[in-house]
Design a protein around this nucleic acid. Structure first.
Lengths: 190, 190
DNA sequence: GTCTATATGTGGATAGAC
DNA sequence: GTCTATCCACATATAGAC
């Protein structure tokens, strides 16, 4: 009994992982189910056993990003000091700068893609940013920033997202590294 | 003789205008030549008389954005003070906030789209950002910021681009307005 | 649960009449 | 220069054998 159940989970997970990687590289809309099937080593028709539609696969993909955010947040919260937590958040982007220069931010580019396609998935995907903004805001509040914390969170996320977009456009991680250096100093001094 | 020549120019321009608007709304990749033809009131086959390929239409679209940048820059430079010029740059985004919340930044979303598609057009499109960064940098240099000007330009553009992305994601211009207010204060105090 | 074959629709591009 | 008809490739989705 565990056998079949485990295999099912494995195959399903492989499909979601492949979809996530391909969507990050090529965009969700450009990624075909044939691409996903091939990378997962699964015949095309089989994809529909696990996901009735491409949109259903998209939902699973967003869930996966949500899980990854939760894990990253735990790492950031391993620091006690809110300033160090914000620094750890920025550091995550630094460590990802090569990938970001190649494919952009996985969440930012996904939301842009979904918005252009007017996809109902955007509603779900945008909660990823909402949750991140809430977390950033709570760190600034812990620093005693009060009501301004909301705008400070927005400023930090905007700068990271914009720098990611530029690094991606110029295919050069240094744009992201230059901006994150500035942001780290800003977090320490704010 | 002027007749035919004028008509040709008109039709061609209508196609580029339609392509620009549709690409901004739906993304360049999702925009079909049939869409462009219909909005221009031109039969599909006719598009190929003016543009051999979709990519050629894309080039014309980028040229159009380049022209619009030049015009915007002239407005910004109607101010003598560099700080006022930077303020005018930010103000352009404020005035565009409703459109940006609906479709994103026309340049930023285009570059993301082209990068995901690994399009050769990205090389051309990225010069739009290069030119904007150069202009911003020269304003900071006029303020006596020296070598740091390059990073200051990057910071300003990053913040605007990131805020545009978030406003677009949440379909709410207020994200952009909150961040531009902060940026205007920053430009005055920097 | 797994796989092949295919229906259905769409998009870039071309041919060729007018 | 303008327009219709169409080719060809590909993408989502389904049918149905195994």
């Amino acid at each position: 009994m565990p056998r079949a159940s485990v295999d099912r989970t494995d195959t399903r997970q492989r499909l979601v992982d492949a979809a996530a990687e391909l969507a990050h590289q090529q965009g969700f809309h450009r990624t075909t189910l044939a691409d996903v099937a091939q990378r997962s080593g699964v015949p095309l028709g089989n994809v529909y056993y696990y996901f009735k539609t491409k949109e259903a696969l998209g939902e699973a993909l967003i869930e996966r990003l949500s899980t990854m955010f939760t894990m990253a947040r735990e790492v950031w919260e391993s620091h006690a000091d809110p300033r160090a937590r914000l620094g750890a958040f920025i550091q995550s982007t630094v460590e990802n700068s090569k990938v970001v220069a190649e494919r952009g931010c996985s969440v930012g580019t996904l939301c842009t893609d979904l918005r252009k396609g007017d996809s109902p998935l955007l509603e779900h995907a945008s909660t990823l940013f909402t949750n991140l903004l809430k977390w950033l805001e709570s760190q600034f509040r812990s620093l005693g920033k009060g009501p301004e914390s909301r705008d400070l969170a927005l400023h930090l996320l905007s700068a990271v997202q914009g720098a990611s977009l530029l690094a991606q456009t110029f295919k050069d991680p240094r744009y992201l590294l230059r901006e994150t250096r500035r942001l780290k100093e800003w977090v320490q001094s704010v």
